[in-house]
């Protein structure tokens, strides 16, 4: 993986790596991606994508407002910065 490509990936992840850590993790990641490439030889025939391991019936809930009794507790001890509210922290 090129350095610029790795930088772009880190930026997308919002992950910052220290210098020593960067070299090690980049090497690990390249090794794991090469290992993932071994899957190329698999012929998946007509199989579709299994997003879940079992069939899960589609569920919907009634379109109604539910009182969340916990919401007040989330606002306890809330911090502010200038005229903003920070959070709420859960």
């Amino acid at each position: 993986m090129q350095e610029a490509e790795f930088d772009s990936l880190l930026s997308t992840c919002r992950i910052q790596l220290a210098n020593g850590e960067r070299e090690k993790i980049k090497k690990d990641i390249e090794e794991v991606i090469r290992y993932f490439d071994s899957m190329d030889s698999m012929d998946c025939g007509g199989f579709g994508e299994a997003y879940h391991p079992i069939q899960i019936p589609e569920k919907t809930r009634d379109d109604e407002v539910i009182k969340c009794s916990k919401s007040d507790s989330y606002l306890k001890g809330i911090k502010t910065y200038r005229f903003y509210v920070v959070g709420p922290k859960i």
Partner: peptide, 10 residues
Amino acid sequence: KALRARALII
């Protein structure tokens, strides 16, 4: 590909 391979393995 991994999702399709999972279906094959299941």
